[in-house]
């Protein structure tokens, strides 16, 4: 039980990373792919924030009568990463809209079929 409690966050982060990875490589729908990318990103955030936790510590906002704070540096890194993540998501979704307007579908195999027809 101690082993589970001390490692569960790492394992769940890895499991989510693999779920996102699976959605990326196995699913042909472009929106599902982007959601998979989001899940992958968020799992990395979870991993970093887990590293920053100190047991018994509080949030890194200085106050009287408190000595032990969690590590603020992973928080700063992830704050930046979240905002950059939404920038990539919005760009990806704009590309999906563009692809839908040109092909009328957002399924990878149908797009490949249309491309092959055009070449012939």
């Amino acid at each position: 039980m101690d082993l589970i409690l001390s490692h569960i966050n790492y394992w769940v982060a890895i499991a989510l990373m693999m779920i996102g990875f699976y959605a990326l490589i196995a699913r042909g729908n472009l929106i599902k792919t982007i959601i998979g990318l989001n899940i992958f990103q968020a799992s990395v955030f979870l991993l970093y924030i887990t590293f920053g936790k100190v047991s018994g510590g509080t949030a890194p906002i200085l106050q009287k009568n408190t000595e032990l704070y969690s590590n603020p540096l992973p928080h700063v890194l992830i704050l930046t990463a979240i905002v950059v993540g939404v920038a990539t998501t919005s760009l990806g979704l704009a590309l999906v809209v563009k692809i839908y307007e040109s092909y009328g579908t957002i399924e990878e195999d149908e797009i490949a079929k249309l491309d092959a027809q055009e070449e012939n």
């Binding site: 924030i49 936790k53 100190v54 992973p74 928080h75 704050l79 979240i82 905002v83 993540g85 919005s90």
Partner: peptide, 28 residues
């Protein structure tokens, strides 16, 4: 996990803006 600033950002950006963008694209 004591990361309150990150939680704010994730709730606003991840749960808010990303979902709205996603729904906007799905409407098309």
């Amino acid at each position: 996990l004591d990361a309150v600033d990150v939680a704010f950002t994730e709730a606003a950006v991840g749960a808010g803006i990303s979902t709205i963008l996603m729904l906007g694209v799905l409407a098309i």
